[in-house]
């Protein structure tokens, strides 16, 4: 029916990942098969050590799967050369991490503009856009502060602004609220939700945070490197309602 609208931004096909440590082999992912539609707000849930971060790295082209394929916009990531891979990470995907990963020696505005510098924008352009993004996350007046001078929530908001720098189609967030208290966590979640509804950005977020469930279109439960179950929003409301 509506084939055109729902194209797959991300598709994983039998993705496995094995880590070798000395003689020991850890199977972090044991065959993941699924697709993420454009504009979707997807949460990846699962206990610690279930492979969420590993999956996150696969989707974000930050690491290579042991077997299987990862497609972004129906392009096999394994086929890309270093230059195309950098382009993909720069323009197509915005990353948000549990540990913020801001560059400590740079100010907020320098952190936000960095991806735009990599994208080859002119100085005037990226400064203007950088300030606009900081305004969006409510940190315009702290643009000249270093990460060490900002609170955790503020640092994460800078990271969100940075993730938006090149208008990515996908935002990947690995436990974005993991290091934040309840209210700042909620702020970040509503910011992400706002991006998803207003800008139609695809949001993929690994999380432990039950609050994330309420805003998600779909929740994927991971257990032991496998997809346990996938729940749609409608069904979810009921089950959450039952729990409460």
């Amino acid at each position: 029916m509506d084939r055109e609208i729902v194209h797959n931004v991300v598709r994983l096909s039998e993705v496995t990942k094995v880590f070798k440590m000395g003689g020991l082999q850890v199977e972090a992912l044991k065959g993941i098969d699924f697709a993420i539609k454009a504009g979707e707000y997807l949460s990846i849930m699962g206990p610690s050590g279930s492979g969420k971060s590993t999956l996150f790295n696969m989707i974000g082209a930050l690491d290579k799967p042991t077997t299987g394929r990862v497609f972004i916009d129906e392009v096999d990531v394994a086929q890309l050369d270093a230059y195309e891979l950098a382009w993909l990470r720069c323009r197509k995907i915005g990353y948000i991490f549990q540990t913020f990963n801001l560059i400590q020696v740079m100010t907020a505005i320098e952190n936000v503009t960095l991806p735009m510098i990599f994208a080859g924008m002119s100085r005037d352009e990226y400064l203007e856009k950088g300030m606009e993004l900081l305004r969006l996350v409510g940190l315009a007046e702290r643009y000249h502060h270093k990460p060490s001078e900002l609170s955790g929530g503020q640092q994460q908001r800078v990271a969100v602004a940075r993730a938006l720098a090149n208008d990515p189609a996908i935002i990947l967030a690995d436990e974005p609220t993991g290091n934040l208290d309840l209210t700042t966590g909620e702020e970040i979640i509503s910011l992400l939700k706002q991006l998803s509804t207003e800008r139609k950005v695809t949001i993929i977020s690994a999380t432990h945070d039950i609050k994330m469930l309420n805003v998600s279109d779909r929740v994927v439960w991971i257990r032991d490197g496998r997809i346990d179950r996938v729940e749609e929003r409608a069904k979810l409301k009921i089950s959450v309602g039952e729990v409460v």
């Binding site: 720069c90 991806p115 990599f118």
Partner: peptide, 16 residues
């Protein structure tokens, strides 16, 4: 390492 990893996530080439 972490800083380098971040640079690469944001689209830095190895040469950078």
């Amino acid at each position: 390492f972490r800083e380098i990893g971040t640079f690469k996530c944001l689209g830095a080439l190895n040469s950078f």
